[in-house]
Design a protein around this nucleic acid. Sequence first.
DNA 1: CCCTTTTCACCTAGGTGGTAAGAT
DNA 2: ATCTTACCACCTAGGTGAAAAGGG
Lengths: 187, 187
Amino acid sequence: VLPSLSRRMFPFLSFNITGLNPTAHYNVFVEVVLADPNHWRFQGGKWVTCGKADNNMQGKCGVSASNKVYVHPESPNTGAHWMRQEISFGKLKLTNNKGANNNNAQMIVLQSLHKYQPRLHIVEVSEDGVEDVNDSSKTQTFIFPETQFIAVTAYQNTDITQLKIDHNPFAKGFRDNYDSSHQIVPG
Amino acid sequence: VLPSLSRRMFPFLSFNITGLNPTAHYNVFVEVVLADPNHWRFQGGKWVTCGKADNNMQGKCGVSASNKVYVHPESPNTGAHWMRQEISFGKLKLTNNKGANNNNAQMIVLQSLHKYQPRLHIVEVSEDGVEDVNDSSKTQTFIFPETQFIAVTAYQNTDITQLKIDHNPFAKGFRDNYDSSHQIVPG
DNA sequence: CCCTTTTCACCTAGGTGGTAAGAT
DNA sequence: ATCTTACCACCTAGGTGAAAAGGG
């Protein structure tokens, strides 16, 4: 879901990284860009393009925007740190509220019913402590097409709803086989 | 308190830092060292030394030990980052269990009924990404005597207990004026 | 006797999908 | 009609001091 109050992305992105310089410093972050310019709707049990593409979306697919980036909270850190174990983005939050970024909280702002492609960026921090995203030797980007998703404000596909209920620990109360026998019963 | 299961230090340490190089990288951490070699006990409403000092404590006052350090979770980071706002150590945990460090969790191991002095360390990370605590030009240490404390496993001074109940949000249920009228009443 | 460990009810803090109401 | 918002009960996760139980 994609509410005005932000929600975490679930299932969340998680990566294993190798080949970094163990003693150099890197920023690691995820960016989310439009995968295509279409509106999508869920019809007849399938996601279909709505026909008309957004007017002002043409040519913007795959282009970065400043408010669509989530820097991993352990950034900056050493190559050794990033390679030690899987890097998870379990706290990455999505929202459709453009004013949501005004707070200190870092959230990714998306448009509902559009398809998105997450990207993983690893940027080496140069000696003077600033990252240089324009130096291609210092920045690497990875794209996994299987991580594409369509943002929604209300669930459309019940399979997705069930997947979340089954695997997200915070949705345990909605599981069919949830044992509530420990609850207090009046009388 | 100082249980085998660790508890947070409260009130917690918090610092404002100025004078760093905004673009250089630093590790920031707190170390806790013995303030004196004595046993302390609370008697007649006051803390008094127990008479006999620990045999193997002589000459160890103020000396570092590897398991008495808590690295601020935002380390490493830039001077600009550390100077932007107050640096709080609200999640620093204390324990008396020497095996507690075996887990991934980073806790400071202390001995009950001994007096301790926290120290703030700021270490510049050199260009190759490793800190050099032996280069005195790259490391700074700050000591505030008013932050000394005596570790305990059970509260002795009721003034301290009340201070925690009054100011620690997690102890709200123990406040005299706590309004529990919202609680469910059976029948 | 004094100190430590364990357990507990009670709280903060915040992440779920459902649902009803609101908006276009 | 379709999408969005606001609110809710219900959950995870974990930080409190009190009090009882354990240990030297």
